[in-house]
Design a protein around this nucleic acid. Structure first.
Lengths: 128, 128
DNA sequence: AGTCTTCTACGAATTGTTTCGTAAACAAAC
DNA sequence: GTTTGTTTACGAAACAATTCGTAGAAGACT
């Protein structure tokens, strides 16, 4: 059903910006990117053009300054990446990934509470 | 303290085999790899040689047929990859990753129970 | 010994990602 | 309308990952 996309690390940085800010021009994206990364303007431009070719981005070329927008949903993309990671790094065990994440990165109290609630929710819906 | 390794996808496949089987020859690794992947023997060999250069693998060259072994621990490597993923894909939120993993991939009952116990364990140790 | 097979080493081709220089299109400012 | 600045398009270079062909070394087998 849904295509299997595979954004590279750089592409993910751009997607994150677009998911956060919504439709933006290359310059807007580039300005944010620059804060955390060394890169020329045309580099960002080229990346976004390629991402458009790959259908990762939509763009509006009505005005001279094109406006780009993510063409893939954040949660779907995250889901695919997580799934891929479960397969290749944790031999298919989601719970192993979860425990690794819990153990490694100390979650805050709220985060833990959040997760517990989520689990209980799942249990309730278990009866289908 | 610990070096920052970054195995590629192919390298991870090989690491998984070595973590599972322990020290092995190129041929042994290749035979397992072949089941799930199209690849020539020399390709596997070259990969493992490069991984040795990168210090991802140790090797014993006493006999003509070299014996390779993972030089990085599984849990440490998994931890680094998960951390990286939390940073680049989930903007630093471990709980978001966990909930994505829970929601997407349906965990079995035992897995859920496992995770719940783990959470309770964490709560108990919270008082330090 | 000589032949066969297996293995390593090397190097090169291929593919994919990231980088950026340069030129042309366009608009705004003068 | 000419200059100036911003933008896109194109292409090529630089780099990294993956692939495999070929050659030669090392054992094993008569």
């Amino acid at each position: 059903m849904s295509r299997q996309i595979k954004p590279t690390e750089s592409e993910l940085e751009i997607l994150n910006i677009l998911w956060d800010k919504g439709a933006s021009t290359v310059r807007e994206v580039h300005e944010i990117l620059e804060k955390t990364k060394e890169a020329g303007y045309t580099t960002t431009l080229k990346l976004m053009q390629i991402m458009h070719e790959k259908k990762l981005l939509k763009r509006n070329t009505d005005s001279k300054t094109h406006v780009y927008e993510a063409a893939v949903s954040q949660s779907q993309t995250q889901g695919q990446i997580v799934q891929r990671m479960i397969d290749t790094v944790f031999n298919g065990s989601a719970s192993q990934l979860i425990m690794q994440a819990l153990g490694n990165h100390k979650a805050t109290d709220e985060e833990l509470e959040h997760i517990k609630q989520y689990l209980e929710q799942m249990e309730k819906n278990k009866g289908k």
